[in-house]
Structure formats: structure tokens, C-alpha cells
Design a protein around this nucleic acid. Structure first.
Lengths: 198, 198
DNA sequence: CCCTCCTTTAGCACCTGCTCATAATATCTG
DNA sequence: CAGATATTATGAGCAGGTGCTAAAGGAGGG
């Protein structure tokens, strides 16, 4: 019975740390009604590192994750850019970007990639997407390296009509048409015209 | 010149910590060719906390951020769902979701919110977005609590025609039309019909 | 009943990466 | 040169540990 008490405590210990990783041995000891030394012993057999190391691991892991998900990466890397004309970017589909069920990349990553590229192409201090029209042509799986090409097909005043094509292995997997509204040096008032914006 | 040397060191210090936050005072001192005490002094005037606190802050922030950015939350929280009929979800725009220049939420968050809701509405083990058509009607700023309503307006075989409206304070800020293709229990072969998918 | 094995505690020295306070130098500047 | 500013040194103390040794405390077997 002694052994099982120990194993139970081990389970509890792991559970406690799961939903509050920032727990000192002292707090854990109090929570589990044992001495600090016992906690240290338990941690060592369970190979649970000390608080500082745990914290640090989390912070490091997070740094990578945050970078990986940070909007700049959701969105791909700019390879080439001719302002007001065209642009090219790439994006590698990571395992986090796919749907569990199908293994297919979530559609909005392609949308985000295309949209961001379109916005980058517009030479303005600020620009907003008016309307968009997208078509998914083929599913994309983790590991795929996507290449997006954007082209300004028309321009009328502060409105840019931009087409974006995303290819994977030279196969078109996505296409989008955007109308981007440039806010360059216009009044910054909150008054938005009735035209569609954002 | 003394003062500017100090300010320069402060800039360097901040820069160093930016791309390697896990730096002890000792390492920093060596890097900047000053004593540890100077580093401590600099940190204190710059209000930079000590390594352990920095690490801990990162880990804590990360815990939240990872949840906030996790694909399930990019996308909002499901409030109501009638399979194959309609659904409602909310999403609060966080400061990370906005463009620095304008303070306006990046458009693809709304797209992602709408798209995910549309996919959730389809009662299928797996579904893919075929085509979409979106319109941004008003800019959205950080802190906004968005509410999305999705409705299936038509169904033809495995294709669902879904409209999604996103409102903020009862004002429509975004609308989208999707054609979602359900893959329910169909062959899982890689052969995709010529119709548009993803 | 004692002996033995396992578990739990305890105590002590040491470590890192600091804080806080105090004091001694450098260095420059008017 | 005096005075201010900037830098460095010194020492005490703290948190949250590691590592090691040692003492209790059962609980069961013989």
C-alpha cells in the first residue's frame, strides 16, 4: 500500500504541475502534505526538472512557437516586390496548419498569404482589403512549399485590383482577386465612405 | 560623450536582449565590455527585469498567447450550432491581430473566423472550402468583440452554400459566401474531381 | 519479538543569479 | 581644480534549488 500511495502522489504531482507549472517544491509539498524533500525525490524519479528549468523550457518553446505562428510567418516570406505592380512570396505549410481530420491545410492560411502579399504590393502607408474573391483549386498538405504571385491588373484612383495565384509544384492550388483600398496620405478621420472597407 | 556612450550601450543592451532574452547579466557584461554592476544599473534604469523574471514572464505570456493564437481561437468560440443549418461564434480582436500602421484588424482574421464557422456548420467528418467571396464593410479595431452568424442557404449534394455575417455592435463589418464541399464518408482516395477544392 | 527493507524526513554545504546598500574610483566638464 | 556623472567593487542576503549523508518510521517476514 505504501508503494501505491507513492505512485498516487506521483500522479497527483504530475497533474498539479500540468495545470500550474509555476509551482515551487515548497508549494507542492504543502499541497500534497509531504515534506519538500519528498517532492524533490519524486521529481527526480519522475525526471521533472526544477521550477526554473521548467519555466525556461516553456519560455524557449514558446519563443519558437510564437515565431512560427507570428503573423509574419502565417503569411509567408517576401521574395520579390515591384511596388504597385507585382510581388512573389513563399510559405511552407507546417503540421500545425493542417486540419487533424484530413491533413489538409486550413484554407485561411492561403487566404492570409494571398491577402498579405496583395497588401504588400500596394505602395501605401496603409491599405485595407475591400473585397475578395477566392477559389481553392487543390488541397495542400503539410510540408508543401507554396509560391504566391500577385499582380496588379487594374488601378482606379485609390483602388487596386489585384490577382494572386498560389502554386505548389507548379500546380495552381489557390487563386484570389482582391480590391485593395489605399489610404495613402488621405485624411485619417474615422469617417469611412460608404464603400466597402477593411 | 559619456552620456551618449551610456545611451548607446542602453540601445545595444535592449537589442541584445531582444534577440536573446535568456542572457545573464554576466554574459551581457562581457558582450558590452562593462562590469556586471553597470549592467545591473542599466537594467534598473531601463526597467528591464532580471533573467528569471524575464523568463517567467515569457513563459506565462506564452501560455496565454499559445492559447490565443492556437488555431481554434484565431477563429473564435462557438456559441451555437445547428448542424447543416446555422451557427454563431464570437471572436475578440486582440492587439496582436491589428496592423501596426492603422490599428485595424488584419482582414484574414475575419476570413478565418467566417471560414471556420462555415466549416463547423457542415456536418461532415471532413470538409473543404471550395470557393469564397468576401466583402469587408467596416474596419475593426483591437478590443472589438465580433459575432459571426452562418447560415446554410442552399445545399446541392455534397456542396453547401453558406453565408456568414460578422457584426460588431450590431454593425455589419464583414460578410462572406462560401461553397463548402463535404467529404463525408466518400472515398478517401487522393483522386479529386475536377471541381475546385481545399 | 527483532530484523530488514523501503519510504519519508532532516540537515548541511554549495550553487546561480540575482537585489539592495554602501563605498571607492574614473572620467569628463565647467 | 572642484563637482558632477558614470563606472566598478564589496559584502550581505534571498529564492529555489542540487547533492550528499543520515536518521527516523513504518510494515512484513521469519
Amino acid at each position: 500500500m505504501q508503494a501505491s500511495q507513492k505512485t498516487m502522489r506521483h500522479q497527483e504531482l504530475k497533474a498539479l504541475l500540468q495545470n500550474n507549472p509555476f509551482c515551487t517544491d515548497e508549494q507542492l509539498a504543502e499541497e500534497l502534505h509531504v515534506s519538500v524533500q519528498t517532492i524533490r525525490l519524486d521529481r527526480s524519479v519522475l525526471k521533472i526538472p526544477e521550477l526554473r528549468v521548467r519555466t525556461r523550457n516553456m519560455a524557449e518553446a514558446a519563443q519558437n512557437k510564437v515565431r512560427a505562428i507570428d503573423s509574419k510567418d502565417i503569411v509567408g516570406e517576401l521574395l520579390d516586390l515591384e511596388l504597385n505592380k507585382s510581388g512573389i512570396s513563399t510559405l511552407t505549410i507546417s503540421p500545425q496548419m493542417v486540419l487533424d481530420k484530413t491533413g489538409v491545410a486550413r484554407g485561411f492560411y492561403m487566404f492570409a498569404m494571398a491577402n498579405t502579399l496583395a497588401l504588400a504590393v500596394v505602395d501605401a502607408r496603409a491599405a485595407l482589403t475591400g473585397v475578395g474573391n477566392v477559389k481553392y483549386k487543390a488541397p495542400v498538405y503539410a510540408g508543401a512549399v507554396l509560391v504566391a504571385k500577385a499582380e496588379v491588373v487594374k488601378r482606379r484612383g485609390d483602388k487596386f485590383f489585384i490577382w494572386v495565384f498560389i502554386k505548389h509544384n507548379n500546380e495552381e492550388v489557390f487563386r484570389a482577386k482582391f480590391i485593395i483600398v489605399s489610404l495613402d496620405d488621405k485624411g485619417e478621420g474615422t469617417a469611412m465612405s460608404s464603400s466597402s472597407l477593411s
